[in-house]
Design a protein around this nucleic acid. Structure first.
Lengths: 144, 144
DNA sequence: TTAGATGCAAAAAGTTTGCCGACCT
DNA sequence: AGGTCGGCAAACTTTTTGCATCTAA
């Protein structure tokens, strides 16, 4: 079953409808397959439907997130904006100087979740992990 | 050297001044010795100086953070507000249902920083780690 | 004396809400 | 017909900025 089909089913199961706007937004998230914020999604969506509204983007994003179809994430420690992905198992390092974002994966995060479950008996559902500092290039530049 | 003295020195070294407002804010952060947001600090500060302004709180918090005297942190995955502490080496688990916040420490986070340094050659300075899910009580309740 | 800090009000940025009309089923 | 959804504008929340005044050094 494709993601669109799955989304359709999930939304219907919750008593909702698969509108053209929702379909477009889901398609874009799937296509881009990377972190997207509401504004970025809005820009892309307008290319295909120039009557779509930012509010609709926000509302759809919230609906999809509540349904568990997409995942909300912050990228930089500034936390200026919320980003969304389908899976969201990639974390991000942001350079303080050049603002470059380097994605990374680490099983330490799953270990951390496990640690919480055994030590605190807390069931971890989602984790925000943002790290910042200096990227290799900016470290080298700093050295000079 | 007390924290106040250290703060005084650091601020002066940066060409700044130790005003009564700054002193009050620093004292409160040290006294409370826990996560504080701008609004919470403002409430406390007003009890001792009812002419203090929220803007001053924000500006002082930013000044102290730039000077490396306090650390900025987010607590819940909502990231609604910024919190500050002196040291900031405690992370937080937030329950989705009852909103309870459980602080925790873990060296996995230092391991993660180390991992980033060896794998990405990125120098980690600060990390935001917020985990949410269900606390033991709410899990039990869910079961019923 | 004078750069730096404060207070006040207003702006900014991201996100949410209220309302009404349009659309699905 | 009845509930759901989208568009628009306005509200909201947290944080920042501009400007005149004041104050520490």
């Amino acid at each position: 079953m494709s993601f669109i089909e799955q989304a359709n089913e999930t939304i219907r199961a919750a008593g909702g409808r698969m509108t053209t706007q929702r379909q477009l937004i889901i398609e874009l998230i799937e296509e881009v397959n990377d972190q997207l914020d509401a504004e970025g999604l809005f820009q892309l969506a307008r290319e295909r439907d120039d009557s779509i509204n930012l509010t609709t983007i926000y509302r759809t994003l919230n609906t999809l997130e509540s349904a568990g179809l997409i995942r909300q994430q912050y990228i930089s420690p500034d936390h200026d904006r919320k980003y969304y992905t389908l899976t969201g198992r990639t974390y991000h390092f942001t350079c303080r100087k050049c603002k470059r974002v380097i994605p990374f994966k680490s099983d330490l995060i799953d270990q951390l979740k496990h640690h919480l479950e055994t030590e605190l008996h807390a069931m971890a559902i989602n984790a925000c992990v943002c790290v910042d500092g200096l990227c290799p290039d900016c470290q080298a530049e700093e050295q000079r």
